[in-house]
Design a protein around this nucleic acid. Sequence first.
DNA 1: CGCCGTTATATGTCCGGACAACCTGACCTA
DNA 2: TAGGTCAGGTTGTCCGGACATATAACGGCG
Lengths: 249, 249
Amino acid sequence: MANQPPLQFSLDRSSPVPLYYQLSQQLEAAIEQGGLAPGSLLGNEIDLAARLGLSRPTVRQAIQSLVDKGLLVRRRGVGTQVLHSQVKRPLELSSLYDDLEAAGQQPATRVLHHGTEAAAAGVAAALGVPEGTEVLRIERLRLAHGEPMAHLCNHLPVGLLDAGPARLEETGLYRLIRAAGITLHSARQTIGARAATAEEGERLAEPEGAPLLTMERTTYDDTGRAVEYGSHVYRASRYSFEFQLLVRS
Amino acid sequence: MANQPPLQFSLDRSSPVPLYYQLSQQLEAAIEQGGLAPGSLLGNEIDLAARLGLSRPTVRQAIQSLVDKGLLVRRRGVGTQVLHSQVKRPLELSSLYDDLEAAGQQPATRVLHHGTEAAAAGVAAALGVPEGTEVLRIERLRLAHGEPMAHLCNHLPVGLLDAGPARLEETGLYRLIRAAGITLHSARQTIGARAATAEEGERLAEPEGAPLLTMERTTYDDTGRAVEYGSHVYRASRYSFEFQLLVRS
DNA sequence: CGCCGTTATATGTCCGGACAACCTGACCTA
DNA sequence: TAGGTCAGGTTGTCCGGACATATAACGGCG
């Protein structure tokens, strides 16, 4: 009940943007801005298609993309419902830099090391290259509001990135990788914790033995090639991982 | 080049299982078992559809589901490629019990507390109920090979689960929730670390001040209702979170 | 020999229709 | 009243086709 007013959608058939995408974006905006109340039905697909002058498959494709995002739920024989949201980010391949920036934390980077070296066994295995292959090692200290937040050590195949330390101090590593024309596809992560060594404590302004969050991550591009292996250490007192995840049904 | 032998697929039109699903499952099996080599092309959709006696949309739907799983990559004008895999679990709503069981760790549970109480502010907010509402609090110690692994504290709305402590010692909480007819949909998690208090250390057989991994999680069902709020503490020396994630393009 | 346009090929998008499976609520019956 | 039955409505699945667009390979031109 309580059918919303029909809601206006503007579709531009001359645009190169696919119609289903135009529709899904406008639907998403309507949901986020409350134009579509949580729990309310979306109205059946046939009518919606007719009203918009689209075919049902197109409308379905738009709806399906929002279902995949976790914003809508389909119930056979009932209808499509707007979920009482809470879902925001179904977990993206996030960059610490972007996270901090989005939180208004004024991120900064200090490059501690930047050079090539022969890959040790662990790094070689993670990157899928023979042991001893030349790889680029980058070590950075990430700051927020001038305070150290994390120590980041990354290994990349040589030649993948041509950005020098200067570029690395301006932005995040992922942004540079993407800017190099690489499309990130997936990553394998391990999150753990351990006590800080004396050296780590000094670097991060924590006492020796303080709890630290650790993350190891290998990132792959869309050909399945490993493009980056990172070993990061965060101050547990200042940082935690927060994310949302959907059940794959 | 190096086109695979046509590969056999058996489709049963009389089965209640959708055709696209039958196909996607057989494709996935072929990929996992090496019948389809990584990096090889899948052959164009039109021919594949004709060979199988299916329509292109049906074949596309099967392929698309594997693309969403991260097993295949589509390239316009080129073809569909099998990804050099590495992707296994795009991160599911995992249960510690299931994880341990899958790893052959002989999980066991000791129920420390099981009863209802008035919800404190934090719990009420997480579950989306008024402060002071009666909720069920469960505290458990999770063991592997007889050694403590984690301390689990969960809060649930009353009446959602009718399982007593006995059932809880036999299996995981998620399995019981699902068995109660609830379809889990999404969860919001925060993973952090901190030093063990004296009491925590005693419970988990760790010295005071030892690093502990913490996870807080609120789980929602497919109506958007919060069904569980958990506050877990893991021994960092014995456990870490490992998962894979895909980039949503 | 190298550059550039053409062409073949593959996926991306969109249409219109058909039937099946499922849920809900109203109606009828015991 | 309580129960089952039936009809309507909605999504799920599947079909066949059409055109657009991106990519790569081929071939011709300078």
